[in-house]
Amino acid sequence: MTRPTDPRILPSDITRSELFLNRRRLLELGVAGAAFGASGVNHLALGADAPPPVDRYKAPRNAAFSVTETPNTLEEISSYNNFYEFGTDKSDPAMNARAFKPTPWSITVDGEAEVKGSFTLEDILKPQALEERVYRMRCVEAWSMVIPWVGFPLGDLIKRFRPTSKAKYVAFTTLMDPKQMPGERDRVLDWPYVEGLRMDEAMHPLTLLAVGVYGKVLPNQNGAPIRLVVPWKYGFKGIKSIVRISFTENQPRTSWSGAAANEYGFYANVNPAVDHPRWSQATERHIGGSSLFAKRQPTLPFNGYASQVASLYTGMDLRRYF
């Protein structure tokens, strides 16, 4: 969705609110500086915004788990996002997630597991070796990207919590904090966002928890500080800014399938043969790169990962369990 473009107001006419606030702060500090001599300059330096993404997550590429297509640029990956917690327009998250604080962060683990409790992000990351994986990303809206994630297999983390035999599913919950996530003030979805996987899907070596992209800390609008990436499923399964991991016996009620069960299934495997009720899933538009005239490309079963994951679903009617 785009906003209605009012022909009288050019985008360039609108001062971004944070720029505006910065200007005002500059003015205030300038006044303070004038009152107290040169000290205002120091305040300005202290008042600088959070540093830009650092190369903290430089990690070796796992070629066996990477596609060979050229990845999208960081600019494309971080400016075109579906993250409704920060607004429903594709450009909203990049704008509204600037003030979001991904540190400190902790994740609560509960449900059918032997190891439970609250863990800081550092606790979670410490024993995990990070790696880069270039994955295809296919959105349910029929567009796609190629993204070089940095992360570690979800399965490795799950083993540390020793789920019991009753744990058939894993559910994930996004942070609920309408102060930081302005989109949560609107009841577009039933907040907080919940996603889930069957245990065998969660343990699959392709399933990734990502903390970075392009070797840098995950931008806020991409789900900082930690998010799920399941490359053979539609993008909405990749829950962002995770604060809770729950092991459950029953299939969790997930946000999109709860909002419109006829349009978004629990499985949400990429499948060109099963259309969304309102649009075709047979092809996709690859974002970025060449020109306006680039052709749509055919969508592949399981987003091209069929040889690795199709066996998870043998005997299942994928039209029914879409």
């Binding site: 999208n72 600019e75 400016s79 075109y80 594709k90 450009s91 538009r285 974002i287 970025g288 306006l292």
Partner: peptide
């Protein structure tokens, strides 16, 4: 933006 066709 990143998806010019959609914007148009």
């Amino acid at each position: 933006g990143a998806d010019p066709v959609r914007t148009l």
